[in-house]
């Protein structure tokens, strides 16, 4: 069973639908006991970092998530909340990954970074079956910097972490649930971890 964490940051249906298409069993929950007992955990979410972080704290999840030992995947803002800090509203985050989340620099580029871009320098079993240059779908204005936890890089003006990993924790800044067959493969790989 996969626990999809519901912390009231809006629309979970694209992640729910993607798992449904893969035939995976899941439950949508904010209950720490259910999350701890799940085989895998997904932290999705859209919205603003400070508000989202506050909602995790209100539910006691900011302590629960870093203590999990099963595979955990954060997507988009879910990943950002697993990083050390976000420049969005100057928000301290859970610090599972050492990365800081920065706003794209102004000038020249359209922000949000929206659409299909490539991931390079892929490592970890999350990307089994894929090679650098694969296209995945992004919608975001903030991105985690590149550091030792980076397992995929994308360049949009500057290089940033398309995905990060440490121990049992994984995160993608892109949306695998909207990234066609490539995204399905990444989610399938996560289900096999």
């Amino acid at each position: 069973m996969i626990a999809i964490i519901d912390y009231d940051t809006g629309n979970l249906c694209s992640v729910v639908n993607a798992l449904g298409r893969l035939g995976a069993e899941y439950t949508v929950t904010s209950d720490p006991a259910v999350i701890r007992a799940a085989e895998r955990v997904l932290l999705p979410g859209v919205g603003e970092a400070r508000t989202a972080m506050a909602r995790l704290r209100e539910r006691g999840l900011a302590e629960v998530i870093p203590s999990l030992t099963q595979p955990v995947l954060g997507i988009c803002i879910g990943l950002q909340l697993m990083c050390a800090h976000s420049e969005e509203s100057d928000t301290p985050c859970m610090g599972i990954f050492a990365n800081r989340v920065r706003k794209f620099p102004a000038g020249g580029l359209k922000v949000p970074h929206m659409g299909w871009n490539t991931i390079e320098g892929l490592s970890t079993p999350l990307f089994d079956g894929l090679t650098g240059g694969a296209y995945i779908y992004y919608v975001h204005s903030y991105a985690p910097e590149v550091n030792a936890d980076t397992i995929a890089t994308t360049t949009y003006g500057i290089p940033f972490s398309g995905a990060v990993a440490r121990d049992n924790f994984f995160g993608t800044q892109f949306h695998p649930e909207k990234s066609g067959r490539t995204g399905e493969l990444i989610l399938q790989n996560f289900l096999k971890l």
Binding site: C13, N17, R21, K178, S179, G180, R181, E184
Partner: peptide, 8 residues
Amino acid sequence: IAAGINIP
């Protein structure tokens, strides 16, 4: 559509 399509 949302349930059946894997792109935006």
